[in-house]
């Protein structure tokens, strides 16, 4: 088991290096940082001084190694746009995105899983058909449209929920949380539903098809032939066997919830990393983009590792110790 974890971590290193190379290449190929930072008028002396200060006069491989060394220490340089350290900006914005992603995943799992189980167990019932129709809407409507529709209904027409922002937040050390205030919770509802809806329908459809498949399997038939109780067959035998693919998808989806919350954050003006990223893109703020890229890669690599570990917990066939 420790050997397995180690090997997965070793495999992650080349992935992260490749992403770092791409992030690093952004600096050279997207815009001219010197021109961006110095503005319209500058003297050649000012220019040379800045080039030297940023280390841009050194050979490219040296720059890359320095970039990685800095990145490892959480040092991504200054934002061109805001002239503040990128690390600070990200630390400031991360709690908003992570809390939103957490709520969206909880919504997706807590609703999608039971709906999937139900539609798998009773594929012909009227409620199952309703769920499936609903899921078609969730899968096919684009996120921004869902967000705008939700705002229209719950913020504009009904006036129950705020249409933008995080509400009041409480500072816990460097972490700003919206979980401790009523307005924070209210502000979370619409973006969480918007962000989680696609994942919810995906999880529901996945669990449904896996359940239908597993319920046809010989071991479920044999469990019935053994006269086991329905509850034990449906949840103990069938649902547990659907978990391996479900964990895979849920893990990857959690990654994409964090990575691609950009659209939702834009629609709801949610002060998270996604909004930071989109604003950085529009002003060619390379250091922020590069840091974001690396961060998201790290999130995916970590989630994949956790998913692999969960397989081991769920499926004994993957654990060592074949035969005797």
């Amino acid at each position: 088991m420790p050997a397995f974890i180690l090997s997965r971590i070793l495999q992650a290193i080349p992935v992260m290096l490749a992403v770092a190379l791409i992030a690093f290449a952004l600096f050279s190929f997207v815009g001219d940082p010197i021109a961006t930072m110095l503005g319209q008028e500058f003297t050649p002396q000012q220019r040379d001084a800045l080039v030297a200060a940023l280390g841009l006069d050194q050979p490219v491989p040296v720059q890359f190694v320095r970039f990685i060394g800095n990145a490892l220490q959480g040092e991504f340089g200054l934002s061109y746009r805001l002239s503040r350290p990128v690390a600070d900006l990200i630390v400031e914005r991360a709690p908003a995105t992570l809390e939103l992603a957490l709520c969206a995943s909880v919504v997706a799992l807590a609703v999608g899983l039971p709906m999937g189980v139900y539609t798998g167990l009773y594929p012909r019932s009227l409620l199952s058909r309703a769920f499936l129709t609903f899921s078609l809407v969730g899968v096919s409507l684009p996120t921004f449209l869902i967000g705008i529709l939700l705002i229209l209904v719950f913020a504009v027409w009904l006036g129950w929920l705020p249409s933008f922002g995080r509400g009041d937040t409480v500072q816990l050390g460097w972490w700003s949380t919206g979980f401790l205030t009523a307005s924070g919770w209210k502000a979370l509802i619409l973006p969480s539903v918007t962000l989680g809806l696609f994942q919810l329908t995906l999880i529901m459809r996945l669990v449904r098809s896996e359940m239908l498949e597993v319920l046809r399997s010989d071991y479920v038939k044999f469990a019935r032939a053994r006269g086991l109780r329905d509850r034990s067959i449906n949840f103990g035998h069938a649902l547990r066997n659907t978990l391996v693919p479900v964990i895979t998808i849920v893990g990857l989806q959690l990654g994409s919830i964090i990575a691609f919350s950009i659209v939702t954050e834009t629609v709801f003006q949610w002060p998270g990393m996604g909004l930071l990223f989109i604003q950085s893109v529009s002003s060619a703020d390379i250091p922020v983009m590069a840091a974001y890229l690396l961060l998201i890669a790290a999130v995916f690599v970590t989630i994949n590792l956790v998913v692999d570990l969960l397989y081991y917990a769920v499926d004994p066939r993957l654990r060592a110790g074949r035969g005797h």
Binding site: D218, Y219, A225
Partner: peptide
């Protein structure tokens, strides 16, 4: 009928590779 199955009439299926639940001892 569930109480008859297993308790009064047992069953053995064809393929032992697929009739046992892989996740339980």
């Amino acid at each position: 009928m569930r109480k008859v199955r297993g308790k009064r009439i047992g069953a053995i299926f064809q393929d032992p590779l697929t009739t046992l639940n892989p996740l339980y001892t």
